[in-house]
C-alpha cells in the first residue's frame, strides 16, 4: 500500500512539472486566439471564448515587410546553413580524426576550440566588421556562412569518426583502395545515420538563431521569424495578440520536427555534449 502511494506521488510530481513546462505553449496559443481585452478580463481561462484564427491572417504584414518574406528567409537560411555546415563539418572532422598529426591539423582543432569558447554574442560584433570587409553585409551569403559552423555538430562527427574501426580502413588500403575510394565506398555509407542526426540537430539550432542575423542584416529584408518576433516584441504599445501568433508560427515547425524525431535528437544532443 505504502509502495503504491510512493508510485502515485512520483507520477503526480512528474506530471505536474510536465504540465508546468507545457503550459507556456498553451498560453501562447490562447494569447493568439483571444483578444487582449479577453485575456485581461480572465488571464487564467484555459479555453478560448471563440475559435478565431483571423490573427494568423492579420500578421501577414509586420514592419512593412510581408510575413511570407520572414518565413521564406527562415526556411532558406536554416536549410542552406544546415546543409553547408553538415557537409563542411563532416569533411573537416573526418580529416582531423583520420590524420590528427598532419602539419597544421592540431592547430586547426585548437583554433576551432578557441572559437567556440569565445562569448558568442560578443563575437558577433567583430563578425559584423569581417562581413563588412568581405562585402557581404545584408546578404544571405554572409548570414549563411556565419551560421554554418557549430560545436555540437563538430563534436558529434568527431566522436563518430574517432570510433570507426581502424581494421576496416586498413583492410581497404591493403586491397589497394585510394583514399577517395575509402571515403566514398566505406566511410560515406557508414556515416549516413550520424549525418542524419547532425542535420536534424543543426536545423533545430539554426532555426532559433537571431542575433547574428540581426547584426549582419542591413534591413528587415533578410530577417528570419525569430528576428521579426524580437523586433515586434520591442515595439511600443505592443500588439500582444500578434506577438503570440508570430511566436506560434516560429515555434511550430521545430516543435513538430522535434516530436517526430525525439529519440534521435535527444540521444544525439547527449552524445555531442558529453564528447565536448
Amino acid at each position: 500500500m505504502a509502495d503504491r502511494l510512493v508510485t502515485v506521488a512520483m507520477y503526480a510530481v512528474a506530471s505536474l512539472v510536465s504540465i508546468l513546462f507545457l503550459y507556456p505553449y498553451w498560453w501562447m496559443c490562447l494569447g493568439a486566439l483571444r483578444t487582449p481585452r479577453q485575456v485581461l478580463g480572465d488571464p487564467l481561462r484555459l479555453w478560448p471564448e471563440v475559435w478565431d484564427f483571423s490573427i494568423f491572417w492579420d500578421i501577414g504584414r509586420i514592419g512593412g515587410v510581408d510575413f511570407w518574406v520572414y518565413a521564406w528567409n527562415s526556411a532558406l537560411i536554416t536549410t542552406a546553413a544546415t546543409l553547408l555546415g553538415v557537409a563542411v563539418t563532416a569533411m573537416g572532422a573526418y580529416a582531423l580524426a583520420r590524420k590528427p598529426d598532419l602539419p597544421g591539423f592540431r592547430w586547426l582543432r585548437f583554433g576551432f576550440l578557441i572559437t567556440i569558447m569565445y562569448p558568442y554574442m560578443l563575437l558577433v560584433i567583430p563578425v559584423y566588421v569581417v562581413v563588412f570587409k568581405l562585402g557581404l553585409l545584408g546578404s544571405y551569403a554572409g548570414i549563411i556562412l556565419f551560421l554554418a559552423l557549430g560545436p555540437i555538430q563538430f563534436f558529434l562527427f568527431d566522436q563518430f569518426f574517432r570510433t570507426l574501426p581502424r581494421e576496416v580502413i586498413e583492410a581497404a588500403i591493403c586491397d589497394g583502395a585510394s583514399e577517395v575510394q575509402i571515403l566514398v565506398r566505406i566511410i560515406l555509407p557508414m556515416a549516413m545515420p550520424v549525418a542524419a542526426t547532425v542535420t536534424l540537430i543543426t536545423f533545430l539550432i539554426t532555426w532559433s538563431q537571431w542575433f547574428p542575423i540581426l547584426v549582419i542584416s542591413r534591413s528587415p529584408d533578410t530577417f528570419t521569424l525569430p528576428v521579426a518576433l524580437l523586433s515586434m516584441n520591442g515595439e511600443l504599445g505592443s500588439n500582444v495578440r500578434g506577438i503570440m501568433a508570430l511566436a506560434v508560427v516560429t515555434t511550430l515547425p521545430v516543435a513538430v520536427l522535434f516530436i517526430l524525431a525525439q529519440r534521435r535528437v535527444m540521444a544525439g544532443i547527449a552524445t555531442g555534449a558529453v564528447k565536448g
Binding site: 513546462f21 507556456p24 532559433s208 525569430p226 518576433l229 506577438i243 511566436a247 516560429t250 515555434t251 521545430v254
Partner: peptide
Amino acid sequence: ALFLPVVTPDVAGYVV
C-alpha cells in the same frame, strides 16, 4: 515535455 523548451527558439519562449 521537459526537452521541448530546449529546441524551442529562445526568443519565442522568452516572449511568452
